[in-house]
Amino acid sequence: MIGSLLAAWTKLRRPALLWGVYAATILVTVLVTTLTFSLADGGAPAGPPGAPGTGETLASLAEPTGLLRGLSGSVSVFGIIALCVAASATAGEYTTGTLRNLLIRQPRRVRLLAGTWAAVALFTLGGVLAATAVGAPMAAVLAGGLNIDTTAWYTADGLATSARTLGQVMLAAAGYATLGTALGVLTRAPIPAVALGFGWLFLVETIIVGTVDGSSRWLPGQLLSAVASHGTAEVGFAAALVTAAGYLVVAAAAATVSFARRDITA
């Protein structure tokens, strides 16, 4: 499995892909963090926490969760990026014809798939860490400009809360990478895999959430976002984590069975 991971990582660390994806995650975090702080007001919250300009106040941003509020608010875009990278990396092995060569070196298909998934997951988590390294100082600078008291950020409780938030965002990002890997294996082509993943997360789920009450408790993208945000008004953290894990187990099982049993024709 280690060899499979290193083989997949060699492709993922190409400068154009590595710096392009990491720059995108950093840019999204900076944008969301800036909007979160610049659109916050001093009145009572007018919407759900975590929604820039609708639920954040200067007081809420002074709470222990304020330091990484922009990071958790960016997870939906992180998810789309992670899913697309994972789907392209996995399905690309079929379309380029390199999968046969990989199977010659590692004939145990499940190990090869596990190593590829692990490489994609590590790549995704690296992007989250890069975004955190920029987003946290950005939040501190913006808080200073708005005279927000950030004392609670740096207490033991605040640091523990920030560590929890980072862990939850990483869990959600790894979940998106898992869905992308499964799509890549099942479709065997990068364009359909990316189109299906992007279309579902960005279009279909948005429409369903806007028209069906309570649907966010059952949609995989919404559940992963809830995991990153430590739960929402509609679904708690534990329920979101368990339900999302169920989706991921089913997706991983389907991809594993398909990868292990289907013939390699290219």
Rank of each mutant, 00 (worst) to 15 (best):
L223E: 01
D41F: 11
S76P: 01
T243M: 02
A182I: 07
E234S: 12
A121L: 02
W200V: 00
W9Q: 10
A51V: 14
W200Y: 15
I191V: 15
S38L: 12
Q222W: 13
A46Q: 15
A156S: 12
Q168E: 15
T116R: 13
A252E: 05
G42K: 10
W9F: 06
W117P: 00
A139R: 01
L179V: 12
D41S: 11
T181A: 03
L219C: 06
A173T: 04
L68I: 09
L39H: 08
L27A: 15
S4M: 09
L186Q: 01
G158W: 15
G53Q: 02
A44D: 11
G43N: 06
F78K: 11
T151H: 14
E93V: 02
E63Q: 15
I26N: 07
A114S: 08
R188K: 10
A44Y: 15
G73I: 04
L99A: 06
F198A: 03
A91L: 08
A182V: 07
L224I: 02
V30A: 11
G43L: 03
F123T: 01
A251I: 00
V85D: 04
A62H: 09
T165A: 02
A130H: 11
T57M: 02
F237W: 09
L68S: 11
G236M: 12
P52S: 03
P64S: 03
T243F: 05
T161H: 12
S258N: 10
A266Y: 13
